[in-house]
Design a binder for these strands. Structure first.
Lengths: 356, 356
DNA sequence: TTCTTTTGCGCGAACGTTTGCGCACACGAG
DNA sequence: CTCGTGTGCGCAAACGTTCGCGCAAAAGAA
């Protein structure tokens, strides 16, 4: 037909534009661009060149509409108060891009997901969903399950209808326990977190089990919120204990809590590691700061995200794949907060701060 | 035609499904659902009810394709090392949802935006773009400009073809300067950041101007990276100064740098605020921690994001709107790190930590 | 030559929404 | 009875891709 090739308005080039210029059918262009071998190599090359020249960029919405694949991964992320989630988000973005996946933020922050927000999962036809929220994202998970959207939990144990990848919390916590036990530290304590966090529970259990394996008395337990402030408050409580009851080492189930514990101790004049050793879990970059110098277990974030995205991809390709759980071992980072005996002459921020 | 109303496969309800059940045309359903007054109130109500019953959820891709509106806001965000960006992201997500906007992460992290990543802006037809990256996102900005996608920079001065909303950096920094000057602090210092950050430059300038207005000698300048470590290193440098040359107060141009400065001082036994006062800028939640207790200017993040999204909305509705820059005043948070004379008896973490 | 097979590509119908235009019907005015 | 004038809704053409078929032409087999 002889309708004008370009509608005058400076529109973006589409597959149809390309097809007209190349003198082929739109379907051919579509196939050529995705390297379909049914199209001859020459034609493919020619169309590829043309696409570049005309600055062709595919319209994701059209692809989504037609194929049902959006290339979008829904992201449900927890409170901003724990930097771990920020690290996680950044790593996910970094790794998703080269895989042709984009992240659509469904929810960020504390609190449950509103229904209206969860609907975005459907509206935008996300291909999969990454969840890291502490609060059980029930409604969102239900939507995903009902619509065959694969879900991978990261740093959370799997719920119904979802896969999961976590750090090996039991092993990691056991490593920490062993470190402290080998140092001969007697009375131990765990600053743990209230109910909801599966991760925290696992870490606590891993620690307790190892201690009991060694036949030692069970650690004291302190329940705090899963925040810096939670750790800070528990540190006060520990410092308030009569000296005879004070633990010789504290395991805070997350680095952010450990930071609070360390600062709380410092404020109270409790010296770390001389008076009390402190260990955490997560391997946040900030744990390496001289003022914390925190012994911790580093979650293998890069590998975890890689695994999570891989699981997602696999399930997007084959929805009938069964759910799966992977737990990856983290690395023990030994630092000053749980050093033996004499503090480092330099590099440790825990000497007496005022004029010595 | 008499094709079966439901194709047996459990597909989601669409507008066509609704139209068949309601016995009206699809166009009527579309209009009814968005409250078009040309449709009678009864019909609207009826269709609304039906939509609920059948669990209708619109397909964003179809809407995008047809109307050119995706409801997506592209998000370009800087390095994870500064928690401010995390706060910003969370606030943006929180405020965007009720406005029917979703955030598509185009880029997160340090480093420039790859071209392939920036293409997502076009592929997903984002309606607008929020940018907070330190690195000038040139390619992405160019794409937006070329395609009429409105851009709002947050916490950055506007570049060509973009609007911006910032905290009033000059005013805020001037407030800090005034506070220190009024306390009679003489030798001042600025821990500033290397070239690229417009925000940092403004804060520095605001501070210097106010100092010079008072006719005082210009502050010492220390160039550090815009990170915790940058501040930490500069604190060492300051502590290394011979006592006579040491400043009496330090303005770190961001809270994260101020944290580094504070920890650096603590490690070196420099007491804050007795020996040196420290002030920051941003108002991070962590600045309130007892171990920092940092005097700072709080960016009105909520208002800033509200304004940014508003600008975006306005420009999406009317693309010919000229670029605009808003700068909102922050609140001075006076805390212990720049307190006068005697340190707080309690609540300040800066008393002598060992048994007093 | 004729019959199959391969290779290379085109046809056309989806996918679900939006939107400009226009049509019927009711109602009041002339 | 006719003529506007609204009101309330339907028609149908987009939007840009994908994908199941199917059809030519070339290549090989009989």
């Amino acid at each position: 037909m002889d309708n004008p090739p370009l509608p005058a308005g400076a529109r973006r080039a589409t597959i149809v534009t390309l097809s007209r210029v190349a003198g082929v059918a739109p379907s051919t262009v579509s196939r050529a661009l995705k390297g379909d071998t049914r199209i001859s190599p020459e034609t493919r090359a020619r169309i590829g060149r043309l696409a570049k020249e005309l600055g062709y960029t595919p319209h994701a919405s059209a692809r989504t509409l037609s194929s049902g694949r959006s290339g979008l991964i829904g992201l449900v992320i927890g409170a901003s108060s724990n930097p771990f989630y920020t690290e996680l988000l950044h790593e996910a973005v970094r790794q998703a891009a080269p895989l042709g996946m984009r992240l659509l933020i469904i929810h960020a922050g504390p609190g449950p997901i509103e229904n209206s927000t969860a609907d975005a999962l459907l509206q935008y036809q996300v291909d999969g969903c990454l969840m890291t929220s502490v609060e059980l994202p029930s409604h969102a998970a239900a939507i995903c399950a009902a619509n065959g959207v694969p879900v991978v939990m990261v740093n959370r144990v799997a719920r119904m209808n979802s896969s999961a990848v976590t750090c090996d919390n039991l092993f990691g916590a056991a490593q920490l326990a062993r470190l402290l036990l080998e140092q001969g530290r007697r009375r131990l304590a765990v600053v743990r977190t209230s109910a909801s966090s599966s991760t925290g529970k696992e870490r606590e259990r891993g620690f307790l089990e190892r201690v009991s394996e060694w036949g030692r008395e069970p650690p004291l337990l302190f329940d705090g919120r899963s925040t810096y402030e939670g750790g800070y408050e528990m540190a006060q409580r520990i410092a308030d204990l009569p000296p005879a009851q004070r633990p010789e080492a504290v395991f805070a189930v997350s680095d952010i809590m450990a930071f609070g514990v360390l600062d709380g101790f410092r404020l109270r004049g409790v010296r770390v590691p001389q008076d009390i050793a402190v260990v955490g879990f997560d391997g946040l970059p900030a744990a390496a700061r001289p003022c914390y110098d925190l012994t911790t277990v580093e979650q293998p974030l890069q590998a975890m995200i890689g695994r999570a995205l891989g699981m997602l991809q696999a399930r997007i390709g084959n929805p009938s794949l069964p759910d799966e759980t992977a737990s990856l071992r983290g690395r023990l980072l030994m630092r000053g907060s749980a050093a033996m005996a004499a503090p480092h002459p330099a590099g440790s921020a825990f000497g007496s701060p005022a004029a010595g």
